[in-house]
Design a protein around this nucleic acid. Structure first.
Lengths: 335, 335
DNA sequence: AGGATAAATGCAAGCGTTTTATTTAAGTTT
DNA sequence: AAACTTAAATAAAACGCTTGCATTTATCCT
């Protein structure tokens, strides 16, 4: 009455060949005479044989599975990347083990370890900050790792990103050009390199070019949630900002709603530039002006890069920087 | 130079015990003397031994991995469910293989087959419609299946949902009570049971109680995208509707924007009730009035149910219906 | 035809665990 | 102290497949 699986051995017996031959036809090995191949295929079909991927994995030391560490699937920025990852993965016959990390350091390390225990062939990491411990685990294991939408100043593993610094500089420059002298910088924690280093540097560079002194009181740190954005608007306003560059779309939506709910007109009285180009930016009114990151592509390219690393193919460059653009939509006055 | 993994055998040798004993301490089997346990644990730690989950899976016929089929991670409704699923899964030491199906029938069957080939211990399916072929695969395999946010009229597998029919009836009744005589019904394909059967029946029931005849021209089918919603508003307006019940939040956002972009006031001139309570409903302005489904919980409960099925525990009921509520927010006039 | 080369197939040793049946050690009981 | 129980540990057989090597069979030359 138990799930009596039929194995490669059953197929071999029924087809009067050896297991090795069945294995060969299953794996598309060319060293099989067409007539035997046909015979085996028929038996496979008749018995409805389905190769056991676990046994395969043990014997071949390949699981055709990659681990994907994501802060939160519910965040449109990351889920868009994840979508690109999964599409390319399935194109290359890989499956994805998806694990939410909640940007919780110990949990990340633990998740990484269970992924490695499951013998994934590669790992794609999305996150905000790579702790030393995590970095150590990355380099200790021989499993290839690619960062997607995530930078690590210590460029040891592969990564796919855009140039956050120049994109930010350009956005802020736009804001300044529209007459805003006090532009707020709103992002997640400054401990995260993308915020604390790249974006902030871009922001400062834009100020500098406009001969505006950097004012620490215009820099705000918040959670990546619209709730947090709504709450922070008041402080931004109090700081005298007339515009804001925001490092996350959901946060930007919150900030905008904070303004709107107080009767502040956007963009007439307050301009907003956001950074991620998730579909959220086009779902709210006014539509958010944004840096147009190719989210899906970042995931897709990251996965493609990972396939190369897993195959030990030569790769020109492990640190990939994709192009971006700027879209002035409804939250900026610029013509 | 190769990744020379250290195996259970190495640990056994170093600790002067048999593999079996090492296996026992790794698996927390009580039949091992405290002193030996300690000794083994030390060696494990010193050698930095990490059990190979693939070998484990082969030997034990359990992979502690469940397959999750999702139409699109990028859809907030489903990703919210997925979040609940993953949290409970990791609580029970399971990992999730996430596969996007794009509601593409052949792809779904293929995805299911590769999940089964990978010997997942269970499957959670999210989707819109279960084809006969898929249903056949479900019942053919002995692997437990639970549907999350997905109904199958033929209740053979476990499922977790809310009562879509009465929730819809209640929402539409609200709309009618507010004075709307022509309420549009906007959803995804009517081929999908949730739309074509449950919600539509709820809609009809509400009309009937108000003695309003059902008018086929007020029923609209659309894709689950805000683009599609924007496009359809015009038709809804032409049909003379002054309000709409919408089966998907992103679609509802689109519909609302279609109205807003034409200068139609919401809710003053057009009221909207949506169905999923994703965070989208609170991110747009006005906030969408909605059926408040416990999205996270649906996923969580589904995963919990699956763990019971995987352990062959007795379960009172495989078809779980969770409570919902109604939230009148900014897109309805009713107090 | 006969030897040589290439193409197909088979054999069997792993892959790293779990698990069952056994053996050995350690207590208890009388 | 012999006879029994119970607890701990071991040995070895799976688990279902891949793969290097050996072997057989077919094909090609001269």
């Amino acid at each position: 009455m138990e799930k009596q699986t039929i194995t490669i051995y059953d197929v071999a017996r029924e087809a009067n060949v050896s297991m090795a031959t069945v294995s060969r036809v299953v794996n598309g090995n060319p060293n099989v005479k067409p007539t035997t191949r046909k015979k085996v295929l028929e038996v496979i079909d008749r018995l409805d044989y389905r190769p056991n991927a676990v046994a395969r994995g043990l014997a071949s030391k390949k699981t055709t599975t990659v681990g994907v560490i994501i802060p939160d699937v519910t965040n449109l920025y990351f889920s868009s990347l994840a979508r690109g990852i999964d599409d390319i993965a399935s194109m290359y016959k890989y499956n994805i083990i998806l694990a939410n990390s909640d940007q919780n350091d110990p949990k990340e390390v633990q998740v990484l370890n269970t992924l490695l225990a499951k013998q994934v062939d590669g790992i794609i990491y999305m996150g905000h900050k790579i702790t030393d411990e995590l970095r150590a685990e990355f380099s200790r294991s021989k499993t290839p790792v690619v960062l997607a939408g995530t930078v690590d100043p210590d460029e040891q593993v592969g990564s796919v990103n855009i140039d956050y610094e120049s994109a930010t500089e350009q956005s802020v420059t736009n804001l300044i050009a529209a007459g805003n002298e006090r532009v707020a910088f709103v992002s997640g924690s400054r401990m995260e390199p993308i915020n604390g280093i790249y974006r902030l540097n871009g922001y400062k560079a834009a100020l500098e070019k406009a001969h505006i002194p950097f004012d620490e009181s215009l820099v705000f740190e918040a959670d990546y949630s619209f709730i947090s954005g709504e709450a922070i608007y008041e402080k931004v306003e109090e700081a005298g900002a007339t515009a804001a560059f925001v490092g996350d779309d959901e946060l930007a939506v919150g900030l905008m709603n904070g303004a709107l709910d107080r009767g502040v007109q956007v963009p007439e009285e307050f301009e907003i530039f956001t950074a991620n180009n998730s579909k959220l930016t086009e779902m709210v009114r006014p539509k958010l002006s944004t840096i147009t990151q190719p989210l899906y592509d970042i995931g897709a390219v990251a996965m493609r890069l990972l396939t190369k690393l897993m195959n030990k193919e030569e790769t020109d460059e492990k640190t990939i920087v994709l192009p971006y653009n700027i879209a002035n939509r409804g939250t900026t006055k610029g013509e």
